[in-house]
Structure formats: structure tokens, C-alpha cells
Design a protein around this nucleic acid. Structure first.
Lengths: 212, 212, 212, 212
DNA sequence: CATGAATGAGCCTTCATTCAT
DNA sequence: TATGAATGAAGGCTCATTCAT
């Protein structure tokens, strides 16, 4: 893949291969950390899954913890990309909100294991670092609140406190992802989120009929 | 409790001491597991904190994991008791909902560490067991949905899908507890939950003014 | 051995056994570190040699390095005891000097491996600690110089700079132990030291015949 | 050296560069092994210090151990050269002895780290090879004893057993170098050796006044 | 029952050495 | 010939669990 012509030079350490390996390791890490938990996963297993020797893992990542963090970060970065890509086509603000939420649900329905990374991260790095998901969420907050404001100002949504609403929707989504994947099959995550979000959005819509 | 007289064969057993010890151990476990994480906490530390020898821990609990589970369970059972006690005075259904949510927030504001147990539990027992909080939530669901139905039927809340609404509120609360304790000080948990819940409840109230 | 009656109490962790174990470990450590070198010796080997599990080693010593240091210290302390015991019978100062030197030689002839500990220690703890042998030597220096002074003042030895002479004799002895054990069999250490020391002492004796 | 023209088949080999590299590596090795100890020094560090890649080290030396040995050997060969150069100007035998000893002291005062190589070597190559310094010492012994004999026969020194005296002086020097560098600053090595040696030489001088 | 010394499997990390380029 | 990425054996240390007293 993308092997076209490159790497014929000899000396340079072939950045392509390195990138591929790094990614391979991260994917293996996501999978294993998510399925077995941080401390029950041996670095050797990750190396095996990525098809490299154990020592090689340590060429790419300082430590098991650093690998975990990088894996969690990759996961959240990809989620961010999904959201950005999905949302950029939505002009209508309410639709944009719904789409964003459903994209998150869709992402974790596609990669159910990655939900566990959120829990793992929190559990393992006991407050020593701000959780990746919180960091990413905070980064998106201004855009999020702007969209809400836009929807309210354009009369699409009732007028409520924007900060409180943003929080409520965030928490709802986060809670739905975490709980939904446990209580129901992760396969139904999207439906679950849609139903929950739509209740609230339905209530928010102006016009008196809170039908979704 | 209610242990009086049972199996009082001689001196050694002393069921009171045993109960006290057991509780001592659970409290120490909650504290340490929550503060340091499951795998970073040594059984020895818990024994020390409870003032017993390490071997004694194993007289009361099969294993480190069993101790953790029992600790998580104690935590959730106490939360349940708080809710029951708080709610039993509320006749008005909407007030009952609000009170329950605020009680949960208040509980974790009082014992902020215990929030971590939720994360720990999920992280450590990777799907091998249904998380304690999910079990307790499921147990309360019928009562919860009944209250919602009651509020709707009595015209206090708009008519929406009860299941979806119950989920939405649950997830919101769960998400708020988990995120709020990280993003803000756990001291403001109650305010955070109140604001988030009140937005939604405000929207739900019949009559057109969604002011809280 | 010395098992008489003791240990019948039950709880107290039997200090005798502990002391014996500790000594067992130190002797095994001396032997193995000396024969195989510090880094080529595995903690497991020492545990095996002492008949305990690896974890037990760490109950008695903080780390492999601490174990080494304790071993080196034991070795030097025993040497000190040998010297003290041998010397206490000598009134005549020159005889005392000779006896001390020969006792050192005898000690290392008896425990040839322990010579290696001196080398190991220096090599491993690169200046991070003052070498055990230097510490012990410095502790004896006042007594040593006093003896020299006594011998000179009583006319038994020629008058020379005491400090310089003390150094010269110390270095000679130390060099002889280290080199002699390599160049010749450690079995001849005593003879080697006697010859070297006697040359110098012979020269030192008053009266013109420097015959030993 | 004397490599001129040999095997000059093409461009690549360039024996000069190779010699320079080899020396560079040895000097880096001496420095690092001496400062950090054999096992705490990584081959990579030596490569870095010499400005070559790690793999290149293995083109010049079979293994880390071989590199160490070569480094120790270089050190002793240079010492030998110093001695030879210093001594060749001395006709008077006693002066020759003194000069040799002081040159050794001067050498290690100039390169204090190299003292450590002696200790390292002994510690690492536990008897598997005769220590470099012993080999070199043994090589010089005939010349050394000849000088002593010459001094005695010419009446400059008292008549004592030559072998024993040679040993005593050797051990004294060796011990002084090893101990002196630890107990005092290596800066005073020369003074220390001079004082120690002069005591003995003073006693050896014919004529009754053993003043240095 | 309580104790805490002993156990030993487990695991992360290091680093000398190799070898494809 | 030089390079440095990859390898994987090795080993120090931890800690849950056991069990003799």
C-alpha cells in the first residue's frame, strides 16, 4: 500500500516502514489494552500482534505507559477526524449537533474496543494526566457552544443556558457510550444515542410538539 | 446485624469484631483502590490501613479481586441507601427525580474517591462481570420509569418516550459524575448535576416556558 | 546448633533462624560474587545456594547491590576480628606489626575468594561509596601508627617518618594480597607477604644487619 | 604503522582512517569504561563518543569484552612506553628505580581514570585471563631485578634478597596507586608514591642514616 | 483465628549483537 | 565498508497468595 517507488534509496531508514510499524503497534495496543486491560496486557503480546520483537516496541515507545497513551490519543484523534469529516457537510446547526453525536456513536460502534480505552486510561493514570477524552472534549467546546448559540439565535432551538446545555449533551453522550456498550450490545450504540439525544433535541425544538 | 446469639459456641468467633473488621477492610479498600488504582494498591497497604495482618485479609476475602468487588458493592449499596432515604420523603414525581439525581451528586461530592471505583471496576474486570453500577441501575429502572410515567400521566411532564427519557437522564447523570469530577473540582459536582438536569427537566415541564 | 529450647513460643519470628538465614545468604553471596563477579551472578543463584526462594533474598536485603555491600562488609569485619584476636597476644610492637600483616595474609589464604570482593567492590561501585577496605583501613590507622611510633621510640626500629612508613606498609600489604593471589597460587599468600614485609622490617630493624 | 603500501587495492580501505578510528574507539572505551565501569557502559556510548555507528564498533572489535581488553592493553602499553622513555636517561640504578616508580605515579596522575581499568579488568574477567598489568609487570621483572642486583653489587643498596625486594617494591607501588587514588585525590599520587618509595629506598641506602 | 515470613511466577526493560541496505 | 534498526535473551524486582506457628 502506497509502496509506489519509495524506499529505493538505500540508507534513509525508510520512514514509510517506520510509520507503518508505529501504526501497527498502536492498533495492536488499542486492541489488546482494550480487550485485556492495561496491566493484564504484556508488552510481548503487543509485539507479537504487531509482528515485531519485544525490543522493537521500545524503539517506538518509551514505555508501556507511553504506548498506552499514544494508543488512546490515536483513538481520540481518529474520532475527532470522523466528527470533522461528518460535520463539515452540515449547514443546519441542529443537524450538525445530531450528526456529531451520531458520528461518535458510529465510531464506537465500529470500534467497540476503543470505548474501553477511555475507562482504562482513567483507571490507570489516576489523575496523573488529564484524560485524553477530556482534553479533546475541551478543545471542541467553543465550536460546540457556538453551534448551540447559532441554533438558538436562529430560532431553531428554545432559549436555554448554553453552557449548561452543552454540558448536559456532552455528559449524555459520554454516559451513553460508556453505559450503552455494557448494558446492551455495542452494536446498538447508534440507536441508543439517537434515541437519547432525540428526546432532548425534540424537547428543545421550538414549536410545541416534542415529537422527535 | 441480626447476628445476635447465632452460633455462639464459645469465645473466639466474636461476630461483632468480625463485622467491624470486615467493614474496616472494605473502607480501607475503597479508599486505597480509589486513590491509587487497583493494581497499584498492594494488599499489604490495605491490611496496614485496616490495622490487621496481611494474612487476615485473606480470611475475609477470597482474593484481591473479591475484595475490590465487595468494596465497589458496598459503595453502590450505600449510594442506594442514600437515594432511598432521600426519595422517600418526596411525593411529587418531578421533585423525586430531581432529588434522586442530586442525591447521587451529593454522595459523590461527599466521597469523591468512590467515583474512581466505577472506573476501576470497569477497567479491571474487563467484561468478566457486569459492573456493579450497571447492576444497581438496572435494579432501579422499573421504579425510575414508573416515576416518569407518573409525572407524564399527571400532566407534569410532556409526553415523551419513557424508556428513551429514562436512558437519557441516566446517561446524563452518569456522564456528569464521571466527567465532572475530572474537569472541575468534585466539590462542584452537585451544582454541575443540578444545572445539567434542570435544563432537561425545564424543557420537559409542561407550559411553554422552559425556565428552570 | 544453639537450638536449645528456644523457639517454643510460637509468634516471635525466631530471630535465630533469621540470623542464620541472613548469614547463609551473605556467605553464598561472598562465594558467588567472588567466583563469578557481581554482574554475572544472578540473585536466583544466591537464593539457590542459600536454600531460599528469590523473594526471600529481598526480605533480607534491599537490592542486589545492598547484598553485595553487606557481603563485602561481613568479609572485612571478619578480617578485622582475626587481626584483633591475633594481635592482642603480642606485646612487642614489631612482632605486632608482623603478626597483623601475616594474619591478613592468612585470612585471605583461608578465604581466597574474598580477595575478589575487594576488586569487585571497587569496580562495581565506581566511587559512589568509599570502598569497605579503605574504610576499615582508615579506622585502624591510628592504632597502626601508634604501634610504629612505639617501636621507634623504644629503639626497636629506626627513626623514619611514621605516616609515610604506615602508608608504605599498608600499600605493600594491599598490593601483595591483590597481586599475589593472581600471580601465584593464593596458597602461598602468607609466604609471599612474609617475605615482602620482612625485607622492609629487616631494613627497619636497628643494628646494621638487615637480615630478616 | 609500516602499513604503507600493503594491500592498496583500491580506495575504500584507507588504513590511516582505520587506524585513527581504532584509536579513537580505544580512547573512548578507556574513558567510559574507567568512568562508568564495564557493565554500566553501553557499546552505543562508546560508538557515540568515537563518532561512529554502533555496528562499526563490531568491525573493529569482536565484542565488548575484546574492546575492553584492547583498551586495557593500550593503557598498559602506553605506561610501558612512558617508563621506558623516562628510564633510558638514568644510568644510576637507584635513580632508575625511583624514576620508574615516579613515572608510573605520574602516568596515573595524568590519566587518573585509567587506574580504574586495572580494577575493572580484574573484576570483569574473573581469572579467565591473566590481568594485563600482571602480564606487563612480569615482562619487566627481569630488567627490574637486574637493576636491583646492579645497585646492590655496586654497593649502592644494602644486600637483601632481590626477589623479595622486587616483589615488595612492586606491591608497594601497585597498592599505592590503587589505594592512593581512592583515599586521597589522584592529584597527589606522585607525592604519595614518592614518600612511600623513599622510605624504603632510604632504608636500603648504605650508610647508616635512613633519611630520605 | 491471626500472623507475617516465605514463596515463586510474572513482567518490564535493557542492551550486546546481527544483518539488510 | 558503515550504518542503525531489529532482535530476543537475560535478569532484577514485585507482590498476591500460602501456611507453619
Amino acid at each position: 500500500m502506497a509502496e509506489t517507488g519509495a524506499r529505493a534509496l538505500g540508507r534513509p531508514p525508510d520512514p514509510d516502514l517506520q510509520d507503518r510499524r508505529r501504526r501497527e503497534l498502536l492498533l495492536a495496543a488499542i486492541d489488546l489494552f482494550a480487550r485485556k486491560g492495561f496491566s493484564s496486557t504484556e508488552v510481548q503480546e503487543i509485539a507479537d500482534a504487531a509482528g515485531v520483537a519485544k525490543g522493537t516496541v521500545y524503539r517506538y515507545f518509551e514505555s508501556k505507559e507511553a504506548l498506552f497513551l499514544a494508543a488512546a490519543d490515536l483513538s481520540m484523534r481518529e474520532l475527532t477526524e470522523w466528527i470533522d469529516r461528518a460535520v463539515e457537510r452540515c449547514v443546519e446547526p441542529v443537524e450538525r449537533l445530531r450528526t456529531a453525536a451520531l458520528t461518535v456513536a458510529g465510531y464506537f460502534e465500529r470500534y467497540p474496543e476503543r470505548i474501553e480505552l477511555l475507562a482504562q486510561e482513567r483507571a490507570v493514570f489516576r489523575g496523573s494526566i488529564p484524560p485524553t477524552h477530556a482534553v479533546y472534549r475541551e478543545k471542541r467546546r467553543p465550536r460546540f457552544e457556538a453551534t448551540l448559540r447559532e441554533a438558538i439565535e436562529s430560532g431553531k432551538l428554545r432559549s436555554v443556558d448554553v453552557r449548561a446545555l452543552a454540558n448536559a449533551l456532552s455528559y449524555l453522550l459520554f454516559g451513553a457510550i460508556l453505559c450503552g456498550s455494557v448494558e446492551h450490545s455495542p452494536r446498538t450504540l447508534k440507536r441508543l444515542v439517537r434515541e437519547s439525544i432525540d428526546v432532548v433535541l425534540g424537547l428543545l425544538k421550538t414549536g410545541d410538539d416534542p415529537h422527535v
